[in-house]
Deep mutational scan, measured.
Amino acid sequence: MIINNLKLIREKKKISQSELAALLESSRQTINGIEKNKYNPSLQLALKIAYYLNTPLEDIFQWQ
Rank of each mutant, 00 (worst) to 15 (best):
N32K: 11
L45Y: 06
N5E: 04
Q62Y: 06
A22Y: 12
F61R: 00
K38P: 02
K14V: 05
F61G: 00
A46C: 11
I31R: 00
I34M: 03
Q29D: 14
L24Q: 00
R28Y: 12
M1S: 04
W63T: 03
L47I: 13
S16N: 05
L23W: 13
N4E: 02
L8W: 09
Y51W: 10
Y39Q: 10
I34Q: 02
I49C: 03
E11A: 08
S42L: 03
K36F: 06
S27C: 08
K38S: 10
A22R: 14
A50Y: 05
P56V: 05
Q62M: 10
Q17E: 04
I34K: 00
A50V: 04
T30F: 14
A21I: 05
Q29C: 13
K14M: 10
G33D: 15
K7A: 11
L43G: 04
N40C: 14
N4K: 00
E25K: 15
D59F: 10
D59E: 14
K7I: 09
W63A: 01
E35A: 03
F61C: 03
N54P: 04
K7M: 09
S26E: 15
R10S: 02
K12N: 12
N54G: 10
Q17H: 03
K36V: 09
N4D: 05
Q17S: 05
L24T: 15
L47E: 13
K13I: 07
Q62F: 06
A50R: 02
S18D: 14
E35N: 01
L8I: 14
L45M: 13
P41S: 02
T30N: 05
T55L: 05
K36S: 14
Q62P: 08
Y39L: 15
Q44A: 13
N54K: 12
L43R: 12
G33A: 15
N37M: 07
K7R: 12
I49G: 00
E25V: 09
N54R: 10
N5G: 02
K12C: 12
I49R: 00
I31K: 01
K14C: 12
S27G: 06
T30Q: 10
S42R: 05
E19F: 09
K12T: 11
I9S: 01
K7E: 10
L20R: 01
S42C: 07
W63L: 05
A50P: 00
L43H: 10
E25L: 11
T30C: 15
E19D: 11
K12H: 10
L6K: 00
I15K: 04
I15H: 04
I34E: 01
Q17G: 04
Q29P: 06
P41K: 02
E25P: 14
Y51L: 09
N32R: 14
S18C: 12
P41D: 01
T30M: 14
N37T: 04
D59G: 09
R28W: 15
W63N: 02
P56A: 08
E11P: 04
Y51T: 08
E11Q: 11
A50L: 04
L23M: 14
I2Q: 07
L24D: 00
N4I: 11
N5Y: 05
N32C: 12
K38G: 07
Y52Q: 08
I9V: 11
A22S: 12
L8R: 13
A21Q: 02
L24S: 10
K36N: 15
D59Q: 12
S26P: 01
G33C: 15
A46L: 04
E35Q: 02
L20T: 00
Q44P: 11
T30S: 06
N37Y: 06
E19Q: 14
N40T: 15
I2M: 10
Y51A: 09
A21M: 03
Y39E: 10
E19L: 10
K7F: 07
I60H: 00
I34G: 02
L47P: 00
I31F: 03
W63D: 02
E35D: 01
N32M: 13
N37A: 08
P56S: 07
L43T: 07
K13F: 10
